[in-house]
Computed example of a mutant assay.
Amino acid sequence: MRAYISAISAVSRALGIVAALFLLSAVFSVSHMVFVRYVLNQSTVWQTEYTTYAIVAATFLGAPWTLLVKGHVNVDLWQLSAGPKLRGVLEGLSGLASMIFVGLIAYAGWYHFEEAWVNGWTSETVWAVPLWMPLLPFPVGMVVLFLQYIAEMMRLALDGATDPDAPLAHQTALFSETTAEPRS
C-alpha cells in the first residue's frame, strides 16, 4: 500500500511541475502577445488560444498535486468538531463521493477526447489546432486525480483521520515525499 501511495504521489508531484510549466508558458505567451500587438503593431494568431489551453491544462493536470497537498476547497466544520473516529468516517465518505464525481468526469473527458481524435476535430481559428491536444489533459488529470484519491483513502486507512491541530508536512512538499508521522 505504501508503495502505491508513494508512486501515485510521485506522479501527482510530476504533474504539478508540468502544470506549473504550462502556467509559465501561458505567461510567456501573453507577454509575447502584448509585444507583438503593441510594440510591433501586428495581429496575433495563436497566443490567446494557446494561453487558454495552457491554463486549462494546468488546472486539470495540477488537480492531483492539489489533492496531495490538501489544497482543494474543503468545508470541514463537521470534521473539525468531530472526534477522531467520526472524522475518519467523514473523510472517507468525502473521499468516496469525490472519487465517484471524478470518475464520471474522467469518463466524460475521455469520451470527448476520443471523439476529437477519431473525427479529426480542429479549432475554428486561424491556428486550427487539432482539438485532441488541448483535450488530453482533461482525462489524464482526472484519472490521476482518481488514483490520488485512492492513495489518500489508503493513507487514511493506514494513518487514520487527519489531526486538525497537527501541521501536515506534505502540504508544502512539491519535490519530496514527506507526510505527517503515523499515529501509534
Rank of each mutant, 00 (worst) to 15 (best):
Ile105Tyr: 11
Leu93Glu: 08
Val39Asp: 05
Val89Ile: 09
Val89Asn: 02
Val73Arg: 07
Gly95Trp: 05
Glu91Ala: 09
Leu40Phe: 06
Ala63Ser: 10
Leu86Trp: 14
Thr59His: 00
Thr66Ile: 05
Thr44Glu: 01
Leu96Tyr: 06
Leu67Phe: 07
Thr59Asn: 00
Thr59Cys: 00
Tyr50Asp: 07
Val89Leu: 07
Leu93Met: 15
Lys70His: 10
Gly92Lys: 03
Phe101Trp: 04
Gly62Ala: 02
Leu96Phe: 11
Arg87Ser: 14
Tyr50Ile: 08
Leu104Lys: 01
Leu77Asp: 14
Ala54Arg: 01
Gly71Thr: 01
Arg37Pro: 05
Gly71Phe: 03
Tyr50Trp: 12
Val102His: 01
Leu93Val: 15
Met99Cys: 06
Val39Glu: 05
Pro84Phe: 05
Phe60His: 01
Asn41Ser: 15
Leu104Met: 03
Ser43Ala: 15
Trp46Gly: 06
Thr51Val: 09
Trp46Pro: 04
Asp76Met: 02
Met99Gly: 13
Val75Phe: 13
Thr52His: 10
Gly88Cys: 07
Leu90Ala: 08
Met99Gln: 05
Thr48Tyr: 11
Lys85Thr: 13
Ser43His: 14
Gln79Ala: 15
Gly88Trp: 03
Val39Asn: 09
Ala82Trp: 11
Lys85Ser: 14
Val39Gly: 06
Thr51Met: 12
Gly88Gln: 08
Pro64Val: 10
Trp65Met: 09
Ser43Gly: 15
Gly103Lys: 08
Leu40Glu: 10
Val102Ile: 11
Pro64Lys: 09
Leu68Asp: 04
Glu49Gly: 00
Gly62Asp: 02
Ile55Ser: 04
Gly83Lys: 13
Thr66Val: 12
Gly92Pro: 02
Gly95Gln: 09
Glu49Tyr: 00
Ser98Arg: 02
Phe60Trp: 12
Phe101Leu: 11
Ala57Gly: 14
Gly83Thr: 13
Leu96Asp: 04
Val102Phe: 07
Phe101Ser: 02
His72Gln: 15
Pro64Phe: 10
Ala57Thr: 03
Trp78Glu: 10
Thr44Ser: 05
Ala82Asp: 14
Gly92Glu: 03
Gln47Glu: 15
Val69Ser: 05
Met99Pro: 05
Phe101Glu: 01
Thr66His: 00
Gly92Thr: 10
